[in-house]
């Protein structure tokens, strides 16, 4: 799997445009994972997740970074450009519409309830991605420890994410290297 399947720029644009426009409630990374890994098989699970980790470490919005990573992997510079422009263009106009009608939307009582429902579903999608990623990590002792240590450090102890990752990631990578594990995931 050293070469990604042939994917046209139009396919990249169409996919990310749809993801951007329809991803109510946020958590876009779980949408991207679903479409790119589960439905289309453009990337392996490990490929996607390592890109997602990179996207979270780098500055910027995680989901757009992930889109750039996927686009770059599939079609280089133009792929990355197509992915980010597509993913932002729908929400851009939706945001302007929302800005125009915001007094009306805010004034409607049910808005808050509907938003809560949408946010809960989006979070459920993220939880699904977490379970998928966790299952992959639970296949060996090293990845399981790395996952748990990251969760305890960042999630439970609330230490700065960059510091925690700077300690755990190199250890995890070096152990993987020594064990010579490829990406069988």
């Amino acid at each position: 799997m050293n070469h990604p399947p042939p994917v046209s720029l139009a396919m990249i644009y169409a996919l990310f445009f749809r993801i951007g426009l329809f991803s109510f409630g946020g958590q876009l990374s779980s949408w991207i994972h679903r479409e790119v890994v589960l439905v289309r098989g453009w990337m392996t699970n490990d490929e996607f997740l390592s890109g997602m980790a990179l996207s979270q470490i780098l500055p910027g919005v995680n989901s757009t970074n992930t889109a750039i990573f996927v686009g770059q992997r599939l079609r280089g510079g133009w792929g990355a450009t197509a992915a980010i422009v597509a993913m932002l263009s729908g929400p851009f106009f939706a945001a302007i519409l929302a800005a125009i009608f915001y007094k009306w939307i805010i004034g409607w009582e049910a808005t808050q309830s509907i938003m809560e429902g949408v946010a809960a579903v989006a979070l459920g999608m993220l939880a699904r991605l977490g379970i998928t990623a966790g299952r992959g990590a639970a296949k060996g002792v090293t990845p399981a420890v790395a996952m748990l240590a990251t969760f305890i450090g960042v999630g439970v102890m609330r230490w700065p994410m960059l510091g925690v990752v700077a300690v755990i990631a190199p250890i995890s990578v070096i152990v993987c290297y020594l064990q010579g594990r490829g990406h069988e995931g």
Binding site: L49, A133, P143, T150, C176
Partner: peptide
């Protein structure tokens, strides 16, 4: 790639 995937999983749960 293999070493970063579990870190991503930990970050998602966080």
């Amino acid at each position: 790639e293999a070493g970063l995937s579990p870190v991503a999983a930990g970050l998602i749960f966080s």
